[in-house]
């Protein structure tokens, strides 16, 4: 079910990008899209009755139903990349605001 939730979240993000005219809102919907994707990645690795993939005192034997660790490693990287692009997007938003005085794309004069 997490899988479908993730895809719905992604679609929400896409919808946000498609319809919003405000720069900040676009960045936010971009983030929603990324979060949806990250959840989707996590949901790929889930095993019913699986345990967090860490060797600790109790579950110290190999292959006793760990959850798939690889998606979690991938999602770690995806999150950080999301941070990178969002930071850059916000910096650009600040620049755009400095230049056009507004975040609304429609009433940015001379944007062509």
């Amino acid at each position: 079910m997490l899988l479908y939730a993730a895809i719905i979240l992604m679609m929400l993000g896409l919808y946000g990008i498609l319809t919003q005219r405000n720069i900040i809102k676009i960045i936010i919907s971009l983030n929603i899209l990324e979060i949806g994707l990250n959840i989707f990645i996590i949901s790929i690795g889930f095993v019913n009755g699986g345990v967090a993939p860490i060797f600790t005192g109790q579950n110290n034997l190999g292959s006793i139903g760990f959850v798939d660790p690889l998606p979690q490693a991938l999602v770690l990287t995806a999150i950080v990349i999301g941070v990178g692009t969002t930071a850059l997007g916000l910096a650009l938003a600040k620049k755009i605001y400095a230049k056009y005085g507004t975040f609304e794309i429609d009433d940015m004069k001379g944007a062509e």
């Binding site: 896409l14 990008i17 498609l18 319809t19 919003q20 676009i26 794309i105 944007a111 062509e112």
Partner: peptide
């Protein structure tokens, strides 16, 4: 056009 959503629209 210089609107960002055009690309995404066509992708979708």
């Amino acid at each position: 056009t210089n609107k960002p959503e055009i690309t995404v629209l066509w992708v979708v």
